[in-house]
Amino acid sequence: MADLVTKPGELAGQEADVPNRFRLSTLVIFGFVFGLLALLGWGLVQVNSGQVDSGMAPDFTITSFEGETITLSDLRGQVVIINFWASWCPPCREEAPYLEATWRKYQEQGVVFIGVDYVDTEKEALAYIEEFDITYFNGPDLGTRISHDYRMDGVPETYYVAKNGELRGVKIGPLAPPELDEKIEELLAEQYP
């Protein structure tokens, strides 16, 4: 019975230089294979990791449909609610009135609402904003960079950013009262020594 681990057989005279060539090609092949596995493993990790919902909120700059520009890091000290939406998304329409009402309620307390329009057409987006009479900041996610940074999976999603710039969780799906009110109260109540 041949052993599972045999010593390499004697190599004929003329193949004396083969071991070196074999070793190089072996190395190359295994290197390639392991590299490939690493890539797939990384991909797997990516796919299985969910939204970014803790740590510092990824910074971004966004320009509204009116031309105004905001950078997230400039809003340090304020509670920020980031809502990803799209005009073609039915659940977004469900939560739109609630979002606008909550915004108006907490506006004076310095809470900032940023609406990030995810892969949408300008015409339909503006129509959507007008339909729900939305007054808070809304701009398109150019190049889907922001949604990529937050690993956003599908609209609607709402990210909560505390006054110190840290993420305090994400709501996947449409918000319903009193979820958002409660969350904002929580964030407003945070004190930093």
Partner: peptide
């Protein structure tokens, strides 16, 4: 909606390159 947007852009006289560049700017290279 996107196809309608392309149609509008073409109607305004945009070239194919302009439309494609717009799409890349808005939605990324993918």
């Amino acid at each position: 909606d996107w196809r309608a947007q392309i149609r509008d852009q073409l109607a305004e006289g945009w070239s194919e390159e302009q439309v494609m560049a717009y799409f890349v700017e808005q939605y990324g290279e993918r």
